[in-house]
């Protein structure tokens, strides 16, 4: 409890105060009212770029990642031998996915001399620098996020084990196709878990930083195509000495994440099925 007030709430309130100031970190903060917030929305095209990039990243990578996680979980759930081995292997990327080492690996793989281009070369296709091209750079980061499907997968797998087998047996007796039983049994039974994973992964994706920082060398380039919200916040705060401005950005992100999560919960009553 004390920890919450001292370590979480205190700094949060201080950053709320800072967001109304001009604060270089090297001199005392100066009160500027709503100036930071006004500049963000009216006089900072790069900020709007960052918002756009982050929204695309969240809206594309999270559904893809969850779909992939569910698909793999279902395959593993069909009673493979050595399940625990597969489970661990697929879970590994989740443990290391947000790390600098993996982002560096990604840079190597999708670079002009990287593995991807060497494979394309076997088929006579001429590659390019996937991380250096504004049309594909964000895509490589989406793939990186999908690749870390392990943690939602493990949760899906546990949930799949909870779906009563008699439902499938009843469906089979009624002659329902496999797609039909997925659609009408598996998905509804899993829906609370889907909601849980969705909220968790969306919050994570909004705050993604390391992959973009490493892959773009801290620039968010090429042409701001990988300028994640948090990366731009970092640039303003730590390389631009505008911590007040960066604090305002952080608070907007906080409010947006809270709103998105609330909307998720609100919408969930239309599609989430609780079994009790």
């Amino acid at each position: 409890m004390i920890g919450f007030f001292v370590i979480t709430l205190g700094p949060m309130l201080y950053s709320l105060y800072l967001s109304f100031t001009d604060f270089s970190m090297l001199a005392a903060p100066e009160w500027v009212g709503f100036d930071n917030y006004i500049k963000l929305f009216t006089n900072d095209p790069k900020y709007l770029d960052a918002v756009r990039v982050t929204l695309v990243y969240v809206l594309v990578s999270v559904p893809l990642q969850l779909a992939f996680a569910l698909a793999v979980a279902m395959v593993l759930n069909r009673g493979l031998r050595g399940l625990s081995l597969y489970r661990s292997v697929y879970y590994l990327p989740s443990l290391i996915g947000a790390s600098v080492a993996v982002a560096v690996l990604w840079r190597q793989m999708f670079g002009s001399n990287g593995l991807i281009n060497q494979i394309l070369d076997w088929f006579g296709i001429e590659g390019m620098s996937w991380i250096g091209n504004p049309e594909t750079a964000l895509g490589t980061l989406v793939i990186l996020n999908v690749w870390t499907f392990g943690s939602p997968m493990v949760i899906f797998l546990a949930a799949l084990r909870q779906v009563p087998q008699y439902l499938y047996e009843a469906a089979a007796v009624d002659g329902i196709s496999r797609w039909g039983s997925f659609r009408h049994i598996t998905l509804p039974m899993l829906s609370p878990i889907v909601l849980f994973n969705l909220i968790l992964q969306m919050i994570g994706a909004f705050q993604a930083f390391t992959p973009a920082f490493v892959v773009s060398g801290g620039t968010g380039g090429p042409v701001n195509s990988t300028l994640f919200y948090t990366l731009y916040l970092y640039q303003r705060g730590f390389t631009g000495f505008q911590m007040g401005y960066a604090s305002a950005m952080a608070w907007i992100l906080f409010v947006v994440i809270a709103l998105v999560t609330a909307v998720n919960f609100w919408f969930s009553k239309y599609w989430v099925h609780y079994d009790d």
């Binding site: 670079g111 002009s112 001399n113 991380i131 250096g132 091209n133 060398g217 801290g218 620039t219 090429p222």
Partner: peptide, 21 residues
């Protein structure tokens, strides 16, 4: 160099020479 290669080596252009690009 083409723009995608340039961007890849933006911070350390001499790496492009070391890499033979």
């Amino acid at each position: 160099t083409t723009p995608d290669i340039t961007s890849e080596y933006q911070g350390t252009p001499y790496d492009a020479v070391v890499a033979g690009v």
